[in-house]
Every structure is written in C-alpha cells, then in structure tokens.
Amino acid sequence: MPLDTSSYSLALLRVDGRRWNELRRINAQIRTQAAADGSSYLEMGHTKVMCVVTGPSEPFGPARVGRTGAGAGATAGASGGEAGVVVSIVVAGFSSVDRKRRGRGDKRIQELQSTISSALAASLHTHLFPHSTISISLHVLSQDGSLLAALINAATLACVDAGIPMTDYVAACTAGSTSTYAANDESADPLLDLNHQEEQELPGLTVATLGDSDRVAVLVCESRVQVSRLEGMLAVGVDGCKQVRAILDRVVRDKGRKMVQEGTVQKGVGLEDMEVD
C-alpha cells in the first residue's frame, strides 16, 4: 500500500498528530430531526453519520411481521413477545473518496445492519413492546475509519432520544496495533480510534461495550494479527468505549438541561437532583 504510517516510532505521533491513547474529536447532537421519534448526528473525526429512529410502532404491513433479515434491513428478536429492531444503513455515494455504487444486496452492509440490530436488541428493553417494531435508519455521510463504531454510537443516541427504555449506553470505538501482523516486535503500541489510513494498514478491531462495564457486546476484527496482540488491543478498546460513553452521556445531559431551560419540557419529578447550571 502506498500509504505510510511507519514514522510512528520516531516521534510516537500518529499520522494525524494524535498520541496512542487519544480519541479523535467526537461531536454529537441529539434531536436533530423534529419530526422523528428519535434522531441523532454524530461525528468521530471525519466519519459523519446520521440516525433516525421510528417507533416502537406497529409493524407496517403483514409481510414484515417476523421477517428475519430479508429485504432492506436486518431484524433481531422479531418474535411476537418482544419488539423487533430493524436497522437499515444507507451509505451516501459521496461519503468516501472513490464513488462506489453499493447495492442493497451488499453483504458487508447487511452484516453491519445485523450486527447493530442484535447489539442494540440486547440493551433495549424490547420485551416492553410486544408485536411492534423499532426501526433505526442510519445514513453515512462521510467515511474516515471506525464506521461500525460511529454507527453504533449514533444509533444508541437516537434510541435514547426516542425514549426507548434501555439497560445502558452501547458505546463503541476501535483499537489497533502499530505492528504489522508479521512482525514479532515487542515494542508495538496499541492504538485507540483508528482513522481510515490506519485502518487500511494496521491490524485493528471494533469493540462495543455495555455502559461502564467491561462487558463486550460487539467485537469485530477483520485483519490478521498475532493472538498475543489481542489482549492489549482489547484493553485499549474497552477503555476507549468508557471514554466514548462519558462523551455520549454528556451530550444527552446537555441537551436535557437546555430543553428544561428553554421550557420545551417541564422539569420532571426526578429532575431536581440534576444540577442545572
């Protein structure tokens, strides 16, 4: 590959000037679409995604009941007792450098959809909404690495905005390792939050954890890497997820505070103990 990240060992700075344990700037908003049940917009560096949640609502049309993965989205837990989570991802043609036409049948996208739907279904209290559907629609506006992580974070925020009860945030980020798979060097550093260039060249994985715990909901590694590197990468990834969770939590609390101040919502009973400054 023509890219070069081998200068890392000289100054211990990565191509975009970060240290090994630094996240890129995460900028997020919730309630971006007034008409939607829940919506969010999230930037992780130059990766930009939008999410709209509809539901929990009655499933539209009899054909959609109990369908598993066929058609436009991926479904999880669609059996009668609990709500189905349908995820559909649209990748904008202008999102990456080369304009690639991706059909609906793209297996990579289908895999992402089913990952997100089954990760969120485990955190959302779907049993409270039997015979209904929560439909999550994600739009990728710009891609610069850590796509799955950004999609999961945006979907979590939108579900929070939609007011669907859930156990905790599902926060995700990526981790990598500076060594290539062949090298057996001991000096290899783990890296946090890979951008597109690093993702192309270095081994990496995507982790999503449930809230502040060490419990991993999603773990995806698509590159060849020594088994001994996994522990370091996973530890850094899980730690990054905790940082991401704190950021997402801040976004939600800031928005709530603003809405109380503006008088959009009445200050609820339990809200006294929330410090409004």
């Binding site: 999880a76 895999e111 089913s114 997100i116 969120l120 279904a121 909901a217 773990l219 995806v220 996994l230």
Partner: peptide, 8 residues
C-alpha cells in the same frame, strides 16, 4: 473475530 451483537 466476529461477535456480532448479542448479550454482552
């Protein structure tokens, strides 16, 4: 490695 969702 693929742990695609499910219970954490």
């Amino acid at each position: 490695i693929a742990k695609l969702g499910g219970t954490p």
